[in-house]
């Protein structure tokens, strides 16, 4: 799934919608990360039988998505990532034997029954994973990746990890391009041949990519040292908290609290 998305969209995929100008895009990345993480926690800690709460969560996230101006279709397409896992749980449900039986099939002597408890488990994982993934998609489509990293850093996330990730992010495009160039060269020169032959050549390509990446890493390091790198990254530009940002986060968190605890 990931592969297909990247191959179709190539470079612009990761930050495709993060340049849009919308009320959600303009919110301070720190506030946005905290608010949406809280949103996910609210969703996860809601008991599965609170159907009303889940409908309001869905409504709230839908309103936020509309405000963000990110095409709803593209968000829906990306949210399908969870399908394989949901299907897997669906397969296991007939084996959860506790509780009242909701229905069943029998194949000769082999009986499959589905209990209400099993259905609750399924509903629980389905609705929670779906709403959570919408929150994550909203966060990543409305925030520039570099801003997200800086937000994590100012929230005391270990700097060494955010630095490694920001390097990785920079070189993903370079290395993917290099890989696809080698793949294209191979495809245009190899016709037919056994499957093992192709696997071997593809493996050589990956091996070659590793050598080039490793050497590139060393080159990058030397270049950095020659420009005065001492193990610490200093960036210009700081985030400024505005009243609007705090107001936004307050409204969303208040709504979440109301949905979860209001009305009993």
């Amino acid at each position: 799934m990931l592969l297909n998305l990247l191959l179709i969209m190539k470079h612009s995929f990761i930050d495709k919608y993060s340049h849009l100008q919308s009320p959600i895009h303009r919110v301070d990345p720190r506030i946005k990360s905290i608010t949406l993480t809280l949103f996910i926690l609210f969703i996860i800690f809601t008991p599965p039988t609170h159907f009303v709460s889940f409908s309001f969560y869905a409504l709230l996230i839908f309103i936020l998505i509309l405000f963000s101006q990110v095409p709803v279709g593209s968000i829906f397409k990306r949210s399908l990532v969870i399908i394989p896992f949901v299907l897997m749980i669906a397969i296991f449900i007939p084996f959860l034997k506790k509780g009242e039986i909701a229905g069943g099939y029998s194949f000769g002597t082999f009986q499959l029954t589905v209990t209400y408890d099993g259905l609750t488990v399924f509903w629980n994982v389905f609705i929670k994973s779906y709403l959570s993934i919408l929150c994550l998609i909203l966060l990543s489509t409305t925030t520039k990746f570099s801003h997200l990293l800086k937000a994590l850093e100012s929230l005391k996330f270990p700097q060494i990890i955010t630095m490694i990730i920001s390097f990785m992010y920079r070189y993903i495009f370079v290395l993917v391009d290099e890989l696809m160039r080698m793949k294209r060269a191979k495809d245009s020169r190899t016709v037919g041949g056994s499957r093992l032959f192709h696997i071997k050549i593809l493996a050589n390509i990956v091996g070659m990519l590793f050598l080039r990446s490793y050497e590139r890493g060393e080159r990058v390091y030397t270049a950095m040292v020659s420009r005065g790198f001492d193990g610490e990254a200093r960036t210009l530009g700081q985030f400024h908290l505005r009243k609007r940002d705090i107001g936004y986060s307050f409204i969303v968190i208040a709504l979440l609290g109301l949905i979860r605890f209001g009305g009993g």
Binding site: L7, L179, S213, G217, E218
Partner: peptide
Amino acid sequence: PLMGVTSAFIFAAQM
């Protein structure tokens, strides 16, 4: 830099 670039390598290789 080394961990960053090799992470990008694993990411690319997975594709």
